[in-house]
Simulated assay, not measured.
Amino acid sequence: MARLKRSEVEPHEDYGFFGPGSVVWKVWSYPTAPTVGFQRSVVVEELNPPLVAAVDATQGIYQRSRTRYDRTLRYFAMVAFAGSLQVCKAADVLVKVHSKAIGQLPYGGGTYDANDPASQLWIQLTGWHSILYAYEKYGPGKLTPAEEKEYWEACAVAAELQTCSPDDIPRDRDGVRAYFERMRSQLSASPIARQAMNHLLKTEIVLPPVPGWAKPASMAVAKAQRIATIATMPHWMREMAGIRQSRLLDILIVPVMKAAFSLAHLNSRVELRLLGRISPSTVAVIAPIKLGVPPRNEEVLTPAEARSRHGYAKPAEAHLELRARQAARVFGDGEAPSERGLIESQQILGPLS
């Protein structure tokens, strides 16, 4: 990645839904977010049977691991940092993308739908919890009570960009713990879940090719992140998924990662260069924040205000006809779903290959 000049950075049209001084920008802009935090979220998610069924059916994480990671991270970063119009477009097209992720559950019977509010709630909470947990463990430490309250309120705001209801988002740590405890009986380390989790723990799958002399260093970085991510996972979850790691490694990795992330955070350009290695399309989203490029309009909107201004429906109410047609193709006619949404998404979420 070439050196990014401040004058070359395209400003966002506004501050989106959070803005400077928010706890979201504080936590999500720390280098733990796109690395350990994000990896933890996508690994833990796979224990949810409907979610992993959709992941396994598309095979995207296996066939295009790097671009899948890049596009997903870009979306989460957009919600946190991008302008309101850009986020509304992304949330809208994501409903179309998810409309094709429907089918029969491979284990236990029943069906899955990536737009189902329960699945979206699981994604939302595992993502936001993982980003915060990594920040606390390998970053500056715990938030103040006021900051934590603001964080979970912000999570509810972000949920308005999904098909789940913001009313279902817990507003404190106890509520989040209670949610995961309720979900525990519904989780399953099926063969496809174990396969997906172990695949996603291979950090090297999202790193770009390097010359031979740099491969040992690249593999060392990938191994360190894998150890760090596993160290954030509760032991009952590791046992369920058959993931083994000693308690000694759990302890030893903490000072190593804290030092590495602290050093990276000293220089915004270094952070952007490192981000460019794992998620090139996310750089344009976060560069204005890292380099202090103000938006065209210095205002923060609510999702409702943004939808009204830009003409978008709530995600839960969006593209109902398309979703019905997809269901008819898959469950009625036994055909493969249309990839219309996936193709359209490339202009917003990045290329598929």
Rank of each mutant, 00 (worst) to 15 (best):
V52T: 14
M233I: 15
Q120M: 15
R182W: 10
H12C: 00
A304G: 07
L291E: 06
P351E: 13
L274T: 08
S308H: 09
T58M: 06
V93K: 02
M1D: 01
Q124Y: 04
K202Q: 11
R277T: 13
R194A: 02
Y151G: 03
T32F: 04
S119R: 03
S281K: 06
I131S: 01
W213A: 13
S268T: 10
W25V: 01
A313N: 12
R325E: 12
L94N: 03
V330M: 09
T144N: 08
A196S: 15
N198T: 08
A156P: 02
A328F: 07
P117Q: 14
G276P: 02
Q346I: 04
E298D: 11
P31R: 07
M197I: 14
S353D: 12
L143I: 12
V157I: 15
G242T: 05
K223W: 14
W128L: 08
V24S: 01
I192C: 06
R269W: 03
Y107N: 00
Y15M: 05
L132A: 02
S7N: 15
R329G: 00
P208R: 09
S353H: 12
L252F: 09
L352G: 00
A193N: 11
M1R: 05
I253V: 15
G103V: 03
A259R: 15
Q39P: 01
Y112S: 05
Y15S: 02
R307Y: 00
R238P: 02
D70T: 04
Q86R: 15
T144V: 06
D56L: 04
V270D: 04
E160D: 13
G175F: 10
R6A: 12
A327I: 03
K223P: 00
E13D: 11
Y133Q: 11
D113V: 03
K258E: 12
P216W: 06
G16E: 14
E339W: 04
G16Q: 13
V44I: 13
L266M: 14
M257W: 05
V79M: 10
M197Y: 03
A134N: 12
A82Q: 02
S262V: 07
T111P: 00
K314H: 13
T35A: 11
S190D: 07
R238G: 02
S188W: 15
E339P: 01
S65I: 00
T144I: 06
L263H: 12
W28H: 06
V24P: 00
C88I: 03
H199L: 08
R177E: 14
